[in-house]
């Protein structure tokens, strides 16, 4: 009767493996919350001993089933022990109170580039439309122009656009705010995602949006409504344009890691920066939600230019405070 050394080894440890297997299966079925604090400690210990069993088994055993089982068990336990510990809600809370503003602070350089691109766009759009109002319709797509153009009179702009009647609570906060949010969020996500395409489409998108904005300013300036328009826009625009800036800066940061990977390989450089950049884009989506709310609901409710200006300045101050102060202690 032969009793192999590897069979002895297995008999001595099999009990611990099956205990680990049970706990891992439990977590796989019900999530990490299914374990008590003691069990969470136990699983970490059992994982380490399974990992060392695997190393020993690879050296002393030729039992294929045993080695495959231990590899599988160790890997499963490893993914539990080093798996995500927090659910969506906890992750989100930690993110908005610290991770998001911290990640934004690292993008200062990219934000400068994006702002410059936007300013170039605004200047170009403004110059083109001031030179000839007819250029407005070729620069701004019909859907966005919404009937506004070279032919619009001062009175039309005032009554239909800048100081249009408040459409009522439901239409303002639910219908309009929502469609704005979805549209803007998708633009923002594309701005970020296209950064993967080396950043050029991102910058083009920013310049183009700037040009459209410049065209609108020029159109209103021609009718002597420049200030009213800027206030009308800025009440939500501060939040919305900032969010677009963040998405674009995140996209550029991704592009930068691909073009200039530094000491790391392209892939690991991308992975290290990409996560933070994607976080910034995700945070910007939440900002679009706020912007949509202001634009759909509050804008027509605050029907005076000074009021809108004050509101815009207040949001700007709040964002500035949030992005420079929040989570600063953990930097």
């Amino acid at each position: 009767m032969i009793v192999l050394r590897s069979a002895e080894f297995r008999r001595a440890r099999e009990h611990a493996w099956s205990r680990l297997d049970e706990m891992v299966s439990l977590v796989e079925r019900k999530g990490i919350g299914a374990l008590s604090a003691d069990e969470a400690q136990e699983i970490a210990l059992l994982y380490r001993s399974a990992a060392s069993s695997l190393s020993v088994a690879r050296n002393i055993a030729l039992d294929r089933n045993l080695i495959l089982y231990l590899e599988n068990l160790t890997l499963r336990a490893y993914l539990v022990v080093y798996g995500p510990r927090r659910g969506v809600m906890q992750s989100l809370a930690a993110f908005f109170t610290g991770g998001f503003p911290r990640a934004v602070r690292k993008l200062a350089k990219h934000l400068v580039i994006v702002s410059a691109a936007m300013l170039i766009g605004i200047a170009a759009g403004y110059a083109l439309v001031r030179a000839d109002l007819e250029n407005f319709s070729s620069l701004v797509p019909g859907l966005l122009a919404g009937g506004r153009g070279a032919g619009s009179t001062r009175e039309e702009l005032l009554s239909d656009e800048l100081f249009a009647a408040w459409p009522g609570f439901v239409d303002a906060f639910v219908v309009f705010a929502n469609s704005l949010f979805r549209h803007n969020a998708i633009v923002g996500i594309f701005c970020f995602g296209l950064g993967f395409a080396l950043g050029v489409p991102t910058l083009l998108l920013v310049v183009y949006n700037g040009a459209v904005l410049g065209a609108f300013i020029a159109l209103h300036a021609a009718k002597g409504l420049a200030l009213d328009f800027v206030a009308w826009l800025a009440i939500h625009g501060v939040t919305e344009i900032l969010a677009i800036f963040l998405c674009a800066a995140a996209g550029l940061s991704v592009a930068e890691t691909v073009i200039f990977p530094g000491d790391l390989s392209r892939l690991s450089s991308l992975a290290s920066r990409g996560r933070e950049a994607a976080g910034v884009a995700a945070g910007a989506v939440a900002m679009f939600f706020i912007a949509g709310f202001i634009e759909g609901g509050f804008r027509q409710l605050v029907a005076s230019t000074p009021g809108r200006g004050a509101f815009a300045l207040a949001t700007a101050a709040l964002w500035a405070l949030y992005f420079t102060r929040a989570g600063a202690g953990d930097d």
């Binding site: 993914l79 080093y82 798996g83 995500p84 992750s91 993110f95 996560r275 994607a278």
Partner: peptide, 9 residues
Amino acid sequence: ELSPSAVIA
């Protein structure tokens, strides 16, 4: 570790 930010990204 598989971090939440990696999953979001």
